[in-house]
Design a protein around this nucleic acid. Structure first.
Lengths: 209, 209
DNA sequence: GAATATTTGGACTATTTCGTCCATCATGCT
DNA sequence: AGCATGATGGACGAAATAGTCCAAATATTC
């Protein structure tokens, strides 16, 4: 199965309907990031998206379905961004730029709200197994983008042959997510910087130069 | 202010009352870990603690107060455990034992539920600033235990003089928390192991021997 | 442009959850 | 023992939230 029934609900939508659906999801994505999934009510979503109850229930059978649409949307959004940041990664400098971009973006809100995917994962992992699976898959893809870049670096002789791209990528992801959480809790992005720098140092230890 | 009014409610409790309060908090701690804070209702707590509504509201003015008691209790619990694991840390082998203990403990539940403090932090940080502050302080103390051990290692010549105990401790904490989250999402503790091993490798790079 | 299908607004119901209240029971104190 | 105070059980009320329904408006198709 290359494109499961998940992405597009089978019923066809008019342009107007599709736009309403998009507005609902966009509002829910934002609200659930800022307030958390459980603390976001359907009335919040309805108000923020300028829609009505019937529109919510026209597009989603229940709140759980909306949450899953939010997860899918956010995952696609983050992965799209990260593809842009990582698909041409082939040097240590590139990895530093990747780090800087994430830190800067998080600094804009002083670390508040954490990682868009990480906070969903933390809240939903033990709550909704389907959402958890989607998030696990998204993390895996994100990590895969890192691993692919690291593999290019290894194959081009930037990294030593014994560097394990998958393991290094896991380490980077964990440092990133842990850094997000510490920064969010402390209201200070410093721990995120330190964590990422540790992970970069670890990669650096496999540099050939 | 060394001990704010936070810890002990000013009203005196009989032994029976204190035991009821403890039962309530213990049940809430467990439920909120497994189900999440927002998904845990006061009725869940009432049932699990074998109490009644009036007892809940006798001891806590509202749910928020109970949540804060849960945070304080869990923080004390985790720190008590970590003090035991870290107060005599003075060698790299000790750090490995610390890592192993955490991984083993998390493996018991196959990574589910994540870190007892981390999951509270993620859910409450942007929701309840007082809880966030308590959690930030708890993370800081936890990290302080690590830093103190690393400092002993440095002062005893195990680590090089340029090793920065606070930074290394931050890196370890981030790898731990990130590892918890990835493990929870993937239902696999492997990423937690890899993340911690990366952080340990980083510490190892400061070893003198 | 008539017939059919989708979309919309919002009132309405059902359910869940928080929080109040008070009569009764237990406990500590003198 | 007897009074004061704390503890308990559970019914009850209030509020928030999820979910239903249908008539009216808009779009699509032939």
């Amino acid at each position: 199965m290359s494109r499961p029934e998940n992405v597009q609900p089978e019923r066809k939508l008019t342009a107007r309907g599709a736009s309403t659906r998009a507005r609902i999801v966009a509002a829910a994505v934002e609200l659930m990031y800022v307030k958390g999934v459980n603390a976001t009510t359907l009335d919040d979503v309805r108000a923020a998206s300028n829609t009505s109850k019937s529109q919510l229930y026209n597009h989603f059978p229940d709140k759980e379905a909306l949450v899953r649409a939010v997860v899918a949307s956010r995952a696609e959004q983050v992965l799209e961004r990260e593809r842009g940041n990582l698909e041409r990664l082939k040097s240590f400098r590139g990895l530093v730029r990747w780090r800087d971009a994430l830190v800067q973006r998080n600094a804009l809100q002083n670390g508040a709200y954490g990682c868009a995917l990480g906070s969903l994962a933390s809240e939903l992992a033990d709550q909704d197994d389907q959402a958890r699976a989607t998030l696990a898959e998204s993390f895996a893809q994100w990590q895969g983008l890192l691993a692919a870049g690291l593999r290019r670096m290894r194959d081009n002789g930037v990294l030593k042959p014994d560097a394990d791209p998958e393991q290094l990528a896991t380490g980077l992801m964990a440092a990133l997510q842990g850094g997000y959480l510490l920064a969010e809790t402390a209201h200070d992005i410093k721990p995120m910087e330190i964590a990422l720098d540790m992970a970069l140092d670890h990669v650096k230890s496999y540099l050939t130069a």
